Computed example of a mutant assay.
Amino acid sequence: MRPRPQGVLLILCGAALLRIALFSELYLRYVKEGLRPYLVVSGVALIALALVGMISRDRDHHHDHDEDEDEDDAHAGHDHTRNPRIAWLLTAPALALLLFPPPALGSYSAGREEARVAAQGTGTFPKLPAGDPVDLTLGAFASRAEWDTGASMKGRTVRLTGFVTRDDDGTWYIARLLVTCCAADAQALKVEIRGADAPAADAWVTVTGAWRPTGKPGSDAARPVLDAASVKRVPAPSDPYEKR
């Protein structure tokens, strides 16, 4: 069986999907957890299609060769199905995807796709659970900081986890990306950190501290700001995104 670029390309793409979805949790960098079965099925289908296509073409080639054995010698052995060698270059991106899966979106994306994900309008939020520090998602913290007229975070110690992103003026934030379906629709959640030195960009940290009110809820001055008591480096989670 003589491999062709089309078949090899399908196999590499299918293998890449199986690598990130079946044999690891890398798929969480790109899509939500519930889409895993579809990625696995797609990977298997691509490989199966490639193998079926290769076998079918190989049989057709042998069949045509047998019918042409008695033709003029000038035409014997001439391969009309030969692919240009440059077509093999198409397999390079698929091979790179298999060997070097792209990282999750980070500070570059967060700095350019800032979004509000709070409730539509101000109001009173439920009380936080008892005990300090209380773990909050960045979305929950930002919503309460911007829209909670009851100031439910006042006097409480909260703990947030995200990756580091910085502005040119030295202001730094912890951020996470909110996804509805996949990384393509990601929106940035950012909380400004004050009172502590900024770690390296894209480093994952857990910050413990207190909410700092910055303005009337619902106004442009109301921004999510945390006065840090401690900043701890942590490993990047297998699932780096927040979900709606």
Rank of each mutant, 00 (worst) to 15 (best):
R2L: 13
R2A: 12
V8R: 01
L9Y: 00
L10W: 01
C13E: 01
G14M: 04
R19G: 10
I20V: 15
I20F: 08
A21Y: 06
L22E: 13
E25I: 02
L28S: 02
V31S: 05
V31R: 00
R36S: 07
Y38L: 14
V40D: 07
G43N: 02
G43M: 01
L46Q: 00
L46H: 01
I47C: 07
A50K: 00
V52H: 07
S56I: 09
S56C: 10
R59P: 09
R59F: 13
R59Q: 14
D60P: 01
D64H: 14
D66K: 15
D66P: 01
D66R: 15
E67C: 05
E71D: 15
D72M: 08
A74M: 03
A74T: 09
A74S: 13
H75I: 04
H75K: 10
G77M: 00
D79V: 05
H80T: 14
R85Q: 09
A87I: 06
W88M: 09
L90S: 12
L90W: 13
T91C: 15
A92T: 14
L95V: 10
L98P: 04
L99G: 08
F100K: 12
S109R: 12
R112P: 06
R112I: 08
R112W: 10
E114A: 11
V117Y: 02
V117L: 08
A118I: 02
A118C: 12
A119I: 10
G121N: 09
T122A: 09
P126E: 08
A130C: 02
A130L: 06
D135F: 05
D135G: 04
L136R: 00
T137R: 05
L138P: 02
L138S: 04
G139A: 13
A140T: 13
F141T: 00
S143F: 00
A145L: 05
E146L: 02
T149A: 08
T149I: 06
A151Y: 10
S152E: 12
S152R: 10
M153H: 06
G155E: 07
T157W: 03
V158C: 04
R159C: 06
T161R: 04
G162N: 04
G162P: 04
F163A: 02
W172F: 13
Y173D: 02
Y173W: 12
A184W: 09
K190R: 14
I193Y: 02
I193L: 08
R194W: 08
P199C: 11
A200I: 09
A201M: 12
D202M: 07
D202T: 10
V205T: 11
V207G: 01
G209R: 04
W211A: 00
P213Q: 10
D220M: 06
A221H: 11
R223G: 00
R223D: 05
V225L: 09
V225T: 09
V225H: 06
D227C: 03
V231E: 05
V231T: 14
R233I: 07
R233S: 14
V234C: 12
S238F: 09
D239R: 07
Y241M: 05
E242R: 01
K243E: 08
K243H: 13
R244L: 11
